[in-house]
Design a protein around this nucleic acid. Structure first.
Length: 598
RNA sequence: GCGUUAGUAGUUCAACUGGAUAGAACAUCAGAUUUCGGCUCUGACGGUUGAGGGUUCGAAUCCUUCCUAACGCACCA
């Protein structure tokens, strides 16, 4: 596909040369979209060139405008306002664009898969169920990997599961003490919820015991590590590290409950992973890599035995890599995991870590360390950092139990979707299993879109009312537009109207709405490129919302299947069909399903 | 204290990386359906872009000083 802007830039450069004997680079020519309230599609900004041209904006605008009309087939008209030259695209050119899109079959999709990329996301701890924060992470990571995929990359979706450490031992202790051999099955609740409840139980009991100790004269910091129940947890962690059989068994059992629960949630969300990395597998690798770094003098060992890296030259600080007792810290296993991943997949061009912005500094340090260790791929590691989610009454705090549970939220969204859809009463020809699928699609469409439409870097204020809104800039609005078009297509099919593989000739009269719609669809591939470059599904949301508005406006303005049924009718159906295909493709990159009726 | 990031209509978000009169959506108000799906469309209202200073043809965007908020600066994960 040819980028329209670049094509225009080339022509303008030629015009400058020919009319003014003025040479400039393509980059110095800036072409913008023409703002809505002015006539035209693209706008040349003349100001930057005035000095060199030694002329006035009007003069330059007129001569360039005339040149483009006479010497290219792109421009049919122009107007100049101040130093801005607004260019109208010719019908002939728009028709070329239209035919290009029609012939490409899958506009915007690059299925070469000749590059590889790894995307890490989700990566939960195993002591708590997934919450709203995870959902943003999961949707982002999943969407980014889908976007990569449609831009020609083979993608590997992975997560690192924090399955080991004091947190899971806390759940284990609580279960041993209060669990009475119960299980998710006996209590008929999801496994992750089950284990999470024991974690909460631990924290409650811990609080009680700390209070007791403090009353007995302990100072607070000391008390936290000296309660009987905490001692038990620490003891369990030691046993785990020494591979105590019954401890490992319990650990495995509880983690498996959690994985069962996670799988159910992932399943509803429609996300999956190609490979899981487990901290329990990789934390020892990191230690090995660090010892090697010490012997190469990249890291240094303090007298007490702890290992550090000095990053002051890089503008950062010193960072500990191994504790004095030889145990690993977070950074340790991240180093090991990164190295292992590039060993597992030597061809990946890029590794994307989807992790919240609270860890910006951590990843800066990690990538610097990998660079110091002389891994060439270190610069291909990218931290896809995203903002936290705030609730109307403040920040989510998982330690205080102030979280929005993922499953509860989804259930609630599905209920709302059901309620609203029933009110509309357009579902007579659905059977009950269709309906269940329909509500789920709408609910998740709303939720995914709501969390993806905001620039990842920015924090999100989660407003429960707005998140389940189906009007305006929302997922269901776009799903509705799709369903609406599909209804037209069904009708066209039943009437035997032709709209596929048509070649539009000049006999079709294009309106401004047609032209805007075609131009918009034509830019889809460049939107995808931008989305990849900026790691931003939000750009796709915006594109789809604009596309839906353009279509609905066109739909309202004129009858698509009219009585005339000539080439123009075919064209309008084809344009609708093209719109629905693009909506379908775009939504699928957000992980949002469409529905033929709703 | 130091560092990072942010602050835009009443609210939630945009602004093509320095371009025009800062755009959408929600909410509010006024309209549109003998019609292919009204979860739609067309308008109106709404702004000193946190504040001041600077850079230039031109600043929400770059520099600077304040103010406010979040996060980070652990032998936590």
């Amino acid at each position: 596909m040819i980028d329209i802007r670049i094509e225009i830039k080339h022509e303008i450069r030629k015009a400058f040369k020919k009319l003014y004997n003025y040479s400039c680079s393509l980059d110095s020519i800036s072409i913008d979209d023409t703002p809505k309230n002015f006539e035209g599609f693209y706008t040349l900004i003349i100001f930057p060139h005035l000095k060199k041209l030694n002329s006035s904006p009007d003069e330059v605008g007129n001569s360039i405008g005339k040149y483009l009309i006479e010497n290219t087939s792109i421009v049919s008209n122009y107007n100049i306002i101040k130093g801005f030259l607004n260019l109208d695209l010719s019908e002939k050119y728009i028709i070329t664009l239209f035919n290009t899109i029609i012939k490409s079959k899958n506009w915007g999709i690059n299925s070469t898969q000749d590059k590889e990329v790894m995307v890490e996301f989700s990566s939960p701890n195993t002591n708590k169920p997934l919450h709203l924060g995870h959902l943003r992470n999961i949707f982002l990571g999943d969407s980014i990997s889908r976007i990569y995929n449609s831009c020609g990359y083979k993608t590997h979706k992975v997560q690192i599961i924090n399955d080991r450490g004091i947190h899971i031992c806390k759940s284990m202790v609580a279960w041993k003490n209060f669990g009475k051999n119960s299980s998710p099955d006996t209590n008929s609740i999801k496994g992750d919820k089950f284990v999470g409840d024991y974690y909460v139980m631990f924290e409650k009991e811990q609080k009680k015991q700390v209070k007791k100790l403090v009353e007995g004269g302990f100072d607070k910091d000391n008390a936290e590590n000296n309660t009987p129940i905490m001692k038990e947890a620490i003891d369990l962690l030691k046993k785990w590290e020494n591979k105590d059989k019954s401890t490992i068994e319990l650990w495995r059992k509880m983690n498996n409950w959690v994985y069962d629960g996670f799988d159910k949630t992932y399943n509803i969300l429609g996300v999956s992973f190609d490979k899981n990395y487990y901290e329990s597998d990789t934390y020892l690798l990191g230690k090995k890599n660090i010892e090697e770094g010490v012997s190469k003098k990249i890291f240094y060992r303090e007298d007490d035995g702890s290992v550090w890296v000095n990053l002051q030259k890089e503008g950062l600080d010193n960072k500990i890599l191994l504790r004095s007792d030889g145990t690993s810290v977070y950074m340790t296993q991240d180093i090991g995991t990164a190295i292992k991943r590039f060993e597992d997949y030597p061809n990946i061009k890029k590794q994307v870590y989807t992790v919240g912005n609270e860890q910006d500094y951590h990843f800066k340090v990690l990538f610097k360390i990998l660079e110091k260790l002389d891994y060439k791929w270190a610069k291909e590691c990218y931290h896809l950092s995203y903002g936290m989610i705030d609730l109307p009454d403040g920040k989510m705090k998982s330690r205080e139990g102030k979280v929005v549970d993922a499953d509860d939220l989804i259930d609630h969204m599905i209920d709302t979707a059901k309620e609203r859809t029933e009110q509309l009463g357009k579902i007579d020809d659905f059977d009950s299993s269709d309906l269940e699928g329909l509500y789920k699609k709408i609910a998740l469409g709303a939720l995914k879109y709501y969390l993806l439409r905001v620039d990842p870097k920015k924090k999100i204020l989660f407003n429960p009312q707005e998140s389940i809104d189906f009007h305006g800039n929302t997922g269901p609005f776009i799903q509705y537009t799709y369903a609406r078009i599909k209804s037209i297509i069904r009708r066209a099919d039943s009437l035997g109207l032709k709209y596929k593989d048509i070649d539009i000739e000049n006999s079709v009269k294009l309106t401004v709405r047609h032209k805007k719609l075609i131009n918009h669809i034509y830019t889809y591939p460049s939107v995808l490129n931008q989305a990849v470059e900026n790691y931003s599904p939000a750009l796709i949301c915006q594109f789809l919302h604009d596309l839906s508005k353009l279509f609905n406006s066109f739909y309202q303005d004129e009858k698509i299947i009219d009585n005339i049924k000539n080439e123009t009718t075919s064209f309008k159906i084809a344009l609708s069909n093209l719109t629905s295909n693009t909506l379908y493709n775009g939504l699928s990159l957000l992980g949002i399903d469409v529905t033929e009726k709703m």
